[in-house]
Amino acid sequence: MDIKEIMQPENLVYKKPELLNDKNMHYCPGCSHGVVHKLVSEVIADMKMEEKTIGVSPVGCAVFAYNYIDIDWEEAAHGRAPALASAIKRLWPDRLVFTYQGDGDLACIGTAETIHALNRGENITIIFINNAIYGMTGGQMAPTTLLGMKTATCPYGREVALHGYPLKITEVAAQLEGTCYVTRQSVHTVGAINKAKKALRKAFDNSMAGRGASLVEIVSTCNSGWKMSPEKANIWMTENMFPYYQLGDLKDTTVETK
């Protein structure tokens, strides 16, 4: 069969989601952000919510998320995205409102906003990219940096006596009455990406059904910050991040108990 014969519109099985525009993303080669951006774009389109979605971007690498996904956005001050989203959703209850935050934004400077928005049961989704490092500012220690992990501000490795423990904020979120769905996913393989997409869909559905707050953590790589190739970063994540940040649903009140 000739290649031209295959490359016909009716045979199209995958293309960049339409909501993701043609601008070159500023992310480093192999960065997990791009995959999550694609998933968010796909899920919004699947739900036909393109005209009714308001995203809130953070301070951190994803600050420019608004440049790539063609929906309406508000760009928040560092850590404050859940406060913005709380207000937006209450003022426009029929809109799909989500935040997109990194570990420094969500689990450090914005811990109060995160915990309280979740605990109030705001009908929003928080997408949490956890790559255990501050990417935008050049690879400093994050609240989720693993013990022993080297960063620009813990060059000899994170140690408890100096820096305390990596924060499992998603476990904390699962304890809050206001959350209906708390899950930890990743996007390093096709299988993981498909699961992450389903998790995002479930979270967005929860937001629209008024079930309470959803938190979707994506354990991610920062190959530049970790100083390895994208491929090696995926392997390192599997071997080091997953044992501490275990994948799977931590809480799902939408599942009927048998």
Binding site: V56, A83, S86, E113
Partner: peptide, 16 residues
Amino acid sequence: ESEVSSINMVYGGAGC
């Protein structure tokens, strides 16, 4: 939960 949050809620609300 704080004045920091209230002003950012105002930002969110004003932005929409």
